[in-house]
Design a protein around this nucleic acid. Structure first.
Lengths: 116, 116
DNA sequence: TTGACAAATATCGGATTTCGATATATAATA
DNA sequence: TATTATATATCGAAATCCGATATTTGTCAA
């Protein structure tokens, strides 16, 4: 990431969220994440692919190979599709994120001298 | 923390924020953080003390020993006080947090099928 | 009075997560 | 034909946090 530690523990959630919207292949996820965050995040390939394998092992996604007749260069695309189990996990993590970020904000945005 | 990875990389910011409000000793920081986050965070001592030493090495805080005539048991309290350098660092990290969390939210809360 | 407990600080190794470097494959392009 | 862009993959290193453990010291109950 641009800032290394800022998405720690949340990348899987972000990836699953993108996949909830549509099936994607790895490289596409990297580009989409960068675009959709206005260049705040730029996930590296070395982070993404192990993470995707992990999501597959945990049955949060399943995969299929892309069209052979693709006219783009490079290795064959591998598409990822979120499972029901993945959706449930995503919902859980999203909820945790809301709770967590609001707790951070409740500490950051307390005025000096305010009663707590 | 209650949830292990959710505050990764942000604990120093939270601690400095508490110290911006008033000088505190370690144990007090743990209790205050728990209280002020409505029990969302519970920082462990094994996390806090190395972190405090690191903040001291970086000149983000300086320290002094508490009163000898304290009637509470336990080791002597060591108070931490935020420096100007620490305040500048806190401001920087807070800004990053705002940017980061809003980027996360912009990905999480996009409606299915919405144009991006 | 003495033993248990609570307050307070401290350190270490282990677990988790992410990144940079590197490798490989392949089609388009110059 | 060589280079570049696309695409997937793996590995070791770095950073951060926690659980377990240890130590000190004052209070309080038995």
């Amino acid at each position: 990431m641009g800032n290394k530690t800022l998405t720690y523990g949340n990348v899987d959630m972000l990836v699953l969220k993108l996949l909830e919207n549509q099936d994607m292949y790895g490289y596409q996820i990297i580009e989409q994440l960068e675009k959709q965050s206005q260049n705040v995040f730029s996930l590296s390939a070395g982070s993404l692919y192990p993470l995707l394998h992990n999501l597959e092992v945990k049955d949060y996604v399943d995969t299929y190979e892309g069209d052979n007749n693709s006219k783009t260069p490079g290795k064959k695309r591998k598409y990822y599709h979120i499972t029901e189990k993945g959706k449930a996990y995503l919902a859980e993590k999203s909820k945790e994120w809301e709770q967590y970020s609001s707790a951070i904000n409740s500490i950051l945005f307390v005025e000096k001298g305010a009663a707590i």
